[in-house]
Design a protein around this nucleic acid. Structure first.
Lengths: 342, 342
DNA sequence: AACGACACCGCAAACGTTTTCGGTAGTATT
DNA sequence: AATACTACCGAAAACGTTTGCGGTGTCGTT
């Protein structure tokens, strides 16, 4: 019933708890024989050290904290899956929190996780996160941190993301190539760098290809879920001069807008084309399939976790945080055809 | 940098740590004045109790363990979201593990979570889970447990699920009503009760409506992801007498099979109809949309978590575990039309 | 014979809490 | 004036580890 403790084990063996502890940790001061004895007994009685006691003593747990905006987002769920994969192998377990895209909630999350003395932290910030004292606070506590996907640039932490500028640039260029003239942009609040980067890529592509930027087609849809996409589409539908193509901040938004437009009787891509970000499963299922920037979500989770683990191992030495940019691919599909070819 | 401890706070106030502890816990032995003093100081200096020390002392943490087969499954991601929602409000945080549909991994997960002295455990078993000593072990450790979705019936634990038999029965009856004659069934391994229940519902519906059960159309596809669905469809496509309708164990499988069949040139639902389980987002996106049993995933997470919390609160008294059956709805959509009406 | 070197092990303190048990005032009761 | 409450607080042990330090015994060296 109650877990076996180190003392119990020591008593059974007739030696002291400290010796058993050292034996199980392969300490040089302990003889081969005693070590074998201890390990056998531990095995036999199924001894499991109490992580709380260990953490208390070592001031550091075997827990890795993860904060994502929303677990339900396929993208983040997949990232978490990747994280879990490598942290599991390394003997850590993950504590998952979601900020629900709210700053206050994110702050509460960081507090809860630092209070729980997580060994390290992996996070993607919320859409509301413009200030980042709470993140600095994590760093001040000496907790290694790796940001992924949505990062705040200024902070000196490990980072794993994609080249948002280039990806958006590529996607927009593709739309221009296809012959679309009025290209809209749908994104949430402007605060976070990811949104800015993608917008910049979109904007630069327009400029460099001599296409016009119509500010009214750049709509702040306030979030990045399907419903926000639908809202954006509604705005477009009200216009006298709606866009003929749309770059959305991610697939759910693209799909939401896509569906709304089709419900309104628009043909895709003849009347309006779409491109998104993520390469989510649903992007391949809709008809026509969605042109999208495929992001390696699982990979991102794995690399972020690996980066953190490396940081944890080399904790004592001075460690300069690395930034890793993962490759993306523009998947050209039915939702954006060359004008006139269909 | 280092977190402020109770002792630090006590020293600052010139009173003992025990008094501060009691004050912050609103213990009757402490005067109003001292309590106010302590709370103010705690507020001012941002004191946060160390959960590891608390857990060590109280032999019970503020962590709730969650084990799911796969985080990436939209269904489970949504359940987790629901869990997080209510546990967060109650001051717990969740530790998420995935079994990857593997029994050995699930066992490792339960071990890790009990080792971490989780206050309670929420789980949906893997497809491989036929033996359940590891779960019994959790119970023996006195850790309250609530199963959801995929439950093992025999165990005396809290349970939150749907009426799998009735749901499958309803869906199958619908297909029969539509005029389909050769109705197939796609599911993973037979071990777990959920699969059995759904099969039984399917089987009984066939029997009670005078429809024939063709054993060769009941294929064990070995898993419950899209690729397994595709595999099932491949098997069907090889047959001289393929089914004219298919009930799949869940939406990903249904969608996988659906897409494979369409790739093979079959028309849906004229040549072959489909029905799934979950009411996942993608079920609504494919064309024609998938007929499916909508399951309240978010709700399921919330109820499971609430049930567990209730169990945690009334821990001392004898508590008889409850089973909660959530309502489902048959969403009839384009993938299953009445024969001849189209 | 005395000395250090070495291998091995235990004592006890520490980590930050909670909680039991007392202890000290002060006040009210006989 | 002795007793009995009450109200409030502190010392110390405990939770299960880890670890610094010291201690014992054995051995080889002078």
């Amino acid at each position: 019933m109650a877990q076996l403790t180190l003392k119990d084990l020591a008593r059974k063996l007739g030696i002291s708890a400290s010796t058993v502890s050292r034996a199980l940790h392969d300490h040089p001061d302990i003889s081969k024989k005693t070590k074998q004895l201890a390990m056998d007994a531990a095995e036999k009685y199924g001894y499991q050290p109490n992580p709380m006691a260990q953490s208390l003593k070592k001031k550091r747990s075997n827990i890795i904290g993860v904060i994502v905006p929303e677990i339900r987002h396929n993208f983040f769920a997949t990232v978490i899956s990747g994280i879990e994969e490598v942290t599991y192998d390394a003997g850590y377990i993950i504590m998952v929190c979601q900020s629900n895209e709210s700053l206050s909630r994110e702050i509460a999350n960081t507090k809860a996780l630092t209070a729980n003395r997580v060994a390290g932290l992996l996070m993607a910030i919320s859409l509301e996160t413009t200030t980042c004292d709470h993140i600095k606070n994590v760093i001040k506590h000496g907790i290694p941190l790796v940001q992924f996907d949505r990062v705040v640039e200024e902070l000196e932490t490990g980072k794993v993301c994609i080249d948002d500028f280039r990806a958006a640039y590529k996607a927009t260029s593709h739309l221009i190539d296809c012959g679309y003239k009025r290209i809209g942009f749908l994104a949430g609040r402007e605060g976070i760098s990811l949104n800015r980067m993608r917008f910049n890529g979109y904007f630069e592509a327009l400029k460099n290809h001599g296409a016009t930027y119509y500010p009214e087609l750049n709509i702040n849809i306030g979030g990045c879920r399907g419903k926000n996409g639908r809202y954006g589409a509604d705005e477009y539908l009200k216009m006298d001069n709606p866009p003929d193509a749309v770059l959305a901040i991610n697939d759910p938004v693209a799909v939401g807008a896509f569906c709304r437009c089709r419900e309104a009787g628009l043909r895709i891509p003849e009347d309006i084309a779409f491109a998104g970000f993520s390469g989510s499963p649903e992007s391949a299922l809709i008809e026509p399939a969605l042109t999208t920037i495929s992001q390696p979500a699982f990979e991102m989770g794995k690399t972020a976790a690996s980066l953190l683990l490396k940081q944890l191992d080399s904790k004592d030495e001075a460690y300069t945080p690395k930034t890793i940019i993962l490759e993306t691919e523009l998947l050209i599909r039915g939702s954006s055809w060359k004008r006139g070819t269909k």
